[in-house]
Amino acid sequence: MMMDHRQNHIDSLRAGLSLLVYPLQLAVEMPGAVSEWFRESLATRRQLQEENASLRTQMLMLKARGQKLQALETENIRLRELLDSAFMIGERVLVAELMSVDLDPYKHQVLINKGELDKIYPGQPILDADGVMGQVVHVGPYTSTAILITDTSHALPVQVNRNGIRTIALGSGTINRLELPYIPNNADIQPGDLLVTSGLGGRFPPGYPVAVVQGVQHDPGRSFAAVVATPSAKLNRSREILLVWPGDTSTLETSSTGQTEAPLPPEEQLVAPEEAAATTEENP
């Protein structure tokens, strides 16, 4: 047990053993999968037409946005080239599904139907359509386990999208709440602010939405404000998720400068911890 907790020696053992329980997981998954299959194959023509139409409009809207995004992306790359820094936009992603299996109810974990054979690795970020969901912790041959950002053992470096204040979002153990305990009382943060990943840990790609600030409480007796936020990802409702390979842009365009391996420009990485320290020291 200590070995599992502290080191990674028996990760391979766990991966091998997880092959043993894969049939059980599949068996539990089956009723849901079968009913889903029935629902899809027995859907009426009208339902399919309606779904098709709504998807079409949605795609049109997304396409229109995409056009704009492309223009912005090229402009962004051009400007960054002017600043002489390498920056990558777009990462390799893989769509996976959650298996309908219950894990330990006191941990926020999910089981994903992709594993080592799909080149999933521990620590890989997972997203859904609306934001960051969590990261992979154990990888088996066909399945992998991920913890959600609201698990009490999870912390995520974020920044406020509006003004770039960096902080850390901790899981609260409640599925719709994140805590931001390290924000100084005088920091400029208000309800409604969008928090995005800052990419400072090197694990999550920068710029993905994480949560929306819900409430800020200033207690003069304490040095930090009590800030809570609501995750933007549908943590307990999404079934389709995205697995991201940060920094791997093999399928997408990259900027032409040579430093493509670094997920962040090096100078930004160097400056950041000091700045973060400075912000925490500012408090009265």
């Binding site: 599992d4 028996i10 997880s18 059980l24 997981q25 894990l103 330990d104 941990k107 089981l111 912790v137």
Partner: peptide, 17 residues
């Protein structure tokens, strides 16, 4: 217990012990 650990994603050996 080991199988329960694998299935529920808890620490390997927790339920086994």
């Amino acid at each position: 217990g080991l199988l329960v650990d694998l299935l529920t994603g808890s620490l390997l050996g927790q339920h086994a012990m």
